[in-house]
C-alpha cells in the first residue's frame, strides 16, 4: 500500500512540474525555413527562401518571401497573416506620395514581417540583434527611395 502512495505522489509531482514548465517555457519560434515549409504548397502564393541574404556588409539573415499570384492568394495572405490588423492605417497612407512599407513583430516575438502593398508581397526575417534589425530596416528604406 505504501508503494501505491509513493507512485501516486510521484505522478502528482510529475504533473505539477509538467504544468509549471508548460507555463514558464516560451512557445517555440518558427525559423524562416520552418515558415517556408509550413506554407510551401499553399495555392495562390509563391514562396521563396533565401539563405543568408546580404542586407549590407555586416548583416546577413535568412529570408522567407510570400508573394500573391492572384487575388485569391492575396485574400489568403490577408487572413493568414492578419494584414488588415497590421496594415490598415498604413494602407490608407500608401500611395499618397509614393511607395510605403509596413512592418511588425510577429506573435512569436522573433520574426519581423515586412509588407509591400503595391507588390502584394511579404517577407519574414529573424534578426539576431537590435542592430541587425536596424540594418535590415535601413535596407528597406533605401529600396523605398528607388
Amino acid at each position: 500500500m505504501k508503494r501505491l502512495w509513493i507512485i501516486t505522489a510521484g505522478l502528482l509531482a510529475a504533473a505539477i512540474v509538467g504544468i509549471t514548465l508548460w507555463h514558464l517555457l516560451p512557445a517555440g519560434t518558427p525559423t524562416p525555413s520552418e515558415l517556408y515549409l509550413r506554407y510551401e504548397h499553399q495555392p495562390g502564393v509563391r514562396m521563396g527562401f533565401i539563405e543568408d541574404y546580404r542586407f549590407d556588409d555586416s548583416t546577413f539573415a535568412d529570408v522567407v518571401t510570400v508573394e500573391a499570384l492572384d487575388s485569391a492568394g492575396w485574400q489568403w495572405m490577408e487572413q493568414e497573416f492578419d494584414l488588415q490588423q497590421h496594415v490598415a492605417q498604413g494602407m490608407a497612407h500608401s500611395g499618397q506620395n509614393g511607395e510605403a512599407i509596413t512592418f511588425w513583430q510577429c506573435d512569436d516575438g522573433q520574426n519581423i514581417a515586412f509588407c509591400s502593398w503595391s507588390g502584394r508581397a511579404l517577407c519574414f526575417v529573424q534578426p539576431r540583434t537590435e542592430s541587425e534589425l536596424e540594418h535590415i530596416i535601413i535596407y528597406h528604406l533605401e529600396k523605398l527611395k528607388e
Binding site: G98, E99, L133
Partner: peptide, 12 residues
C-alpha cells in the same frame, strides 16, 4: 516594432 507597434514608412 519591438514595443508591439506596426510601423508604416513612406518616402516623400
Amino acid at each position: 516594432v519591438r514595443k508591439g507597434y506596426s510601423v508604416t514608412i513612406e518616402y516623400d
